[in-house]
């Protein structure tokens, strides 16, 4: 009898969670939103200049380029020049958006970003696409798994990793009002909506609790926030574990207060990111928790100090133990 009731309750919660996820089951392209938003900005503001390094068709800066040819500069396959020339344009009073793949925009031009962009604290926004494992078939050379780590170490740069198309648009709108270096990290694949125009309560500096829960918190960033929601759904359905899901878009400066509040109430915090577990979101959460008065366990999910490889995004997530099912399985071990 009791077992039947539990079964029924589980089935009910499964339906509720499924409804939340189904309601949001729409995929959009962060990249398209980026290109279209830039084109809108271009109409509003004459001081906006866009640059790319021969990837404008992929990063979607070509949407801006078609409308504002004179304010678009393609430097060719030359990322160091992309950054330093953008810095010059900023010194001449322009607001500059530069794009390439995350791997090359941050990796190839790291020292230019450090010494010219950030040391001079200039108004250049690096909006890079193709972050993380979900680049897919192109393989390890194109899968940026260290970009957050290497950007985070540089003073003066703000880092943002939106979860979906709506949030991408919001952070871009915010970037118009912010005159200093920013790194915005976008995905290649179309991503499920986490937010909608109605429910997005956007404060760029604040973490958002997307789903409440008492047993533990999973903190996630970027497109993986949707996966965190799915993980929570599985845990609820299968094991009646009530996982809180917190999304952090702003990776630097990070919302310490929200993280500390988690540490206060939970014994375990999990982190999830489409990035190496070294130097990314998980590391930042550890830093905050370690320095707080509320020590709790932090378990990091991400790519574990290894390179990626070719495969479909779904295959890669499975290979690297990052599907919601696999993560739920791991989380359960810590909580049961």
């Amino acid at each position: 009898m009791l077992m039947n009731i539990i079964k029924q309750l589980r089935s009910l919660s499964k339906t509720i969670m499924k409804n939340i996820l189904d309601k949001n089951k729409k995929k959009q392209s962060m990249r398209n939103v980026y290109g279209e938003t830039l084109a809108l900005f271009g109409e509003k503001r004459q001081d906006i200049v866009v640059m790319d390094a021969d990837l404008s068709c992929s990063t979607k800066t070509n949407i801006f380029a078609k409308k504002f040819k004179e304010r678009f500069f393609n430097v060719g396959i030359a990322e160091q020049n992309l950054i330093t020339q953008a810095c010059g344009l900023s010194l001449a009073g322009k607001k500059v958006y530069v794009s390439s793949f995350a791997m090359f925009a941050t990796g190839r031009a790291w020292e230019q970003i450090r010494n010219t962009l950030c040391y001079n604290n200039l108004d250049v926004k690096i909006v890079a696409t193709h972050c993380g494992l979900t680049v897919g078939e192109d393989g390890a050379s194109h899968q940026a798994l260290e970009d957050i780590a290497i950007m985070k170490a540089i003073p003066n740069i703000m880092i943002y990793s939106p979860s979906d198309a709506y949030e991408t648009k919001k952070i871009l709108e915010f970037s118009l009002t912010y005159d200093f270096p920013m790194y915005i990290r976008l995905s290649r694949c179309d991503v499920y909506d986490v937010f909608t125009y109605e429910n997005i309560n956007f404060d760029p500096y604040k973490a958002q609790i997307i789903k409440k829960g008492n047993d533990a918190t999973i903190i996630s960033t970027g497109e993986f926030t949707y996966n965190a929601l799915e993980t929570a759904s599985i845990l609820k359905e299968e094991y009646n574990i009530d996982l809180e899901v917190m999304h952090i878009g702003m990776l630097k400066p990070i919302d310490k207060e929200s993280i500390i509040n988690c540490a206060k109430k939970q014994k375990t915090i999990f982190t999830l990111e489409n990035h190496s577990i070294i130097g990314g979101l998980g590391s930042s959460v550890c830093n905050v928790v370690c320095a707080s008065d509320y020590p709790c366990r932090v378990i990091k999910f991400g790519v574990n100090d290894t390179f990626g490889q070719s495969g479909t995004p779904d295959e890669l997530l499975e290979f690297y133990n990052l599907t919601p099912g696999q993560i739920a399985n791991e989380i359960k071990k810590y909580l049961v």
């Binding site: 200049v49 500069f73 160091q80 020049n81 330093t84 020339q85 953008a86 810095c87 010059g88 344009l89 900023s90 010194l91 001449a92 009073g93 322009k94 020292e111 230019q112 010494n115 010219t116 040391y119 001079n120």
Partner: peptide, 21 residues
């Protein structure tokens, strides 16, 4: 005009300013 020190970046910065002008 701009902080320098790491070699090889000044010309590119100059180009950016020149484009802006």
């Amino acid at each position: 005009e701009v902080s320098t020190g790491s070699l090889g970046q000044g010309l590119s910065i100059a180009n950016g300013i020149a484009l802006g002008l």
